[in-house]
Simulated scan of single mutants.
Amino acid sequence: MPLLTRRALLAAILMLPALGPAAAAPTRYVLDRDRSEVGFSFDLAGTRLRGTMPVARAEVLVDLSDLSRSSVEVTLDVARARVALPLARQAMLGPDILWAERYPEICFVSARVRLGPQGRISEGAKIVGHQTIRDVTRPVTLRAALYRQPGSAPEDLDFLEIRLTGSVSRRAYGASGRADIVRDRVDLDISATIRRAE
Rank of each mutant, 00 (worst) to 15 (best):
R80S: 05
R196H: 07
E161K: 05
V140F: 08
L85S: 11
A81T: 06
G51T: 00
A144G: 12
V74N: 03
R80F: 03
G39N: 08
G20M: 09
I97S: 02
A81F: 04
K126M: 13
V113F: 11
R195E: 05
D187I: 01
S110W: 03
E37R: 15
G177V: 03
D135N: 11
A88Q: 02
L93R: 15
R82H: 09
E161Y: 15
I121W: 11
S191W: 14
Y173W: 07
I194N: 06
I106C: 12
A179M: 08
A58H: 06
V30M: 11
A125G: 02
M1V: 02
R178F: 14
D135I: 02
D187E: 07
A22V: 09
R102D: 01
S152Q: 11
D32I: 14
V186Q: 05
A24M: 05
R163H: 06
A25T: 03
V74D: 00
V60S: 09
D34C: 10
D135H: 10
G51Q: 01
L19Y: 10
L14M: 06
L9Y: 06
D32H: 15
P104H: 06
L61A: 11
A192P: 00
L19V: 04
P17A: 14
A22S: 12
L64D: 00
V136K: 15
D96Y: 08
L3T: 04
A56Y: 12
L10K: 08
I97G: 01
T193M: 11
T132W: 11
V30I: 15
D43S: 10
L87G: 05
S176P: 01
S68K: 13
P104A: 12
F159N: 05
L188H: 02
L16G: 01
L87C: 07
D96H: 11
A179D: 07
Y103M: 08
T27N: 03
A22R: 13
A45C: 03
E101D: 02
Y173I: 00
Y173Q: 00
D180T: 02
S167I: 03
G39H: 08
E37Y: 12
T193D: 06
R112T: 03
A91T: 07
A25V: 05
S169H: 09
Y173P: 00
D32V: 14
S71I: 04
M53A: 07
D32R: 15
